[in-house]
Simulated scan of single mutants.
Amino acid sequence: MLTRAIKITQYLHSLRHQLFSVPCLLAALIAFFSVFMVSTPAHAAVDTYVRRYLKATEPVALALDGQGQTKPFSAEDLSAGKELFETHCLNCHVGGATLPDPTVSLALNTLAGATPPRDNINGLVAFLREPMTYDGSDISFWCRQVPESWMPQEQVEKLAAFVLRAAQKAPGWGTSDF
C-alpha cells in the first residue's frame, strides 16, 4: 500500500513537471489564443464609435451623388474611414469642426451648402482630390490634396463615407457643442 502511494506521488510529481514545462505552457497559450482568434465575432472589426454613435450595424446607404444614387457602406467600411480620418484629418477637424476656419465645419448643412456640394460621396472625394474653397472659387490651402497614388479610390470613399455618416448621426458633429 505504501509503495502504491509513493508511486502515485511520483507520478503526480512527474505529471506536474510535464504540465508546467515551458513547451507545454506555450502550447496551452497558443491553443487558448487560437480559439479566441478564430471565434472572434465579425463585428469585432467595427469601431465602438461607429457602432454606438453612427448607428451602423447593417450596411448604410449613403448618397453617392446629387442625382439620388446611393452606395452601401458596411460598419467595417465606416470603421476603416474613421481610422483614415483619425490618421489624416483629425489635426484640423476635431469633432467635425474645422480649426483653421471655424466658420466652415463638416456639419451636413455646411457640406450641402458648399460649391459644389460636398454632402455626397462623389462631392467629398472630388474635394479631397482637389481641395477648393467653400465657394469653389479657388484652390484651398487648408486641406491637403489626396492623390490616387497616396490613397486609392476605395479608401478615399470610406473616408468620405465616415465623414458623411458622422455628419448625419454623430451627436455634436460639426457644431460648437461637440
Rank of each mutant, 00 (worst) to 15 (best):
D101T: 02
L159F: 09
A42K: 08
R4H: 09
A27Y: 08
W150I: 03
R129W: 02
E130Q: 07
P72G: 04
T57P: 00
R118T: 05
M132L: 10
K71F: 01
Q168A: 05
T175M: 07
S149R: 05
L128V: 01
V38A: 13
N120G: 10
Y53D: 01
R52H: 09
V60R: 03
R16K: 00
P72N: 04
A166L: 07
A112L: 07
Y11W: 07
H13I: 11
A107R: 12
V146N: 07
I139A: 10
P72D: 03
L84R: 11
T40S: 00
S74P: 06
F20H: 09
H13W: 09
F32A: 06
A27L: 15
H43D: 06
V22F: 10
R129F: 01
Q18R: 14
T70G: 15
W173R: 09
L111T: 02
R4E: 14
E83L: 12
F178G: 10
C92G: 11
D77W: 02
G96T: 05
P59W: 04
N109S: 14
P23H: 06
W142G: 04
E83I: 02
A56K: 00
A166I: 06
A114N: 06
T103P: 04
W142R: 15
V38K: 13
G66C: 12
P131Q: 05
A170D: 14
I6V: 14
Y11A: 14
E154C: 03
L99M: 06
P23Y: 03
L29F: 13
E130A: 07
S149W: 00
K55Q: 15
G123D: 13
I139K: 12
A161Y: 08
I6W: 07
D65R: 12
L12P: 05
A114V: 01
T115V: 14
T9V: 08
F127M: 04
A161V: 06
F36G: 09
V46M: 04
M151H: 00
P59D: 04
P100K: 11
V125M: 12
H43V: 00
K158A: 07
S39T: 07
Q153F: 03
K158E: 13
L111C: 03
T133V: 02
A107H: 04
Q18E: 08
Y134F: 11
E148C: 01
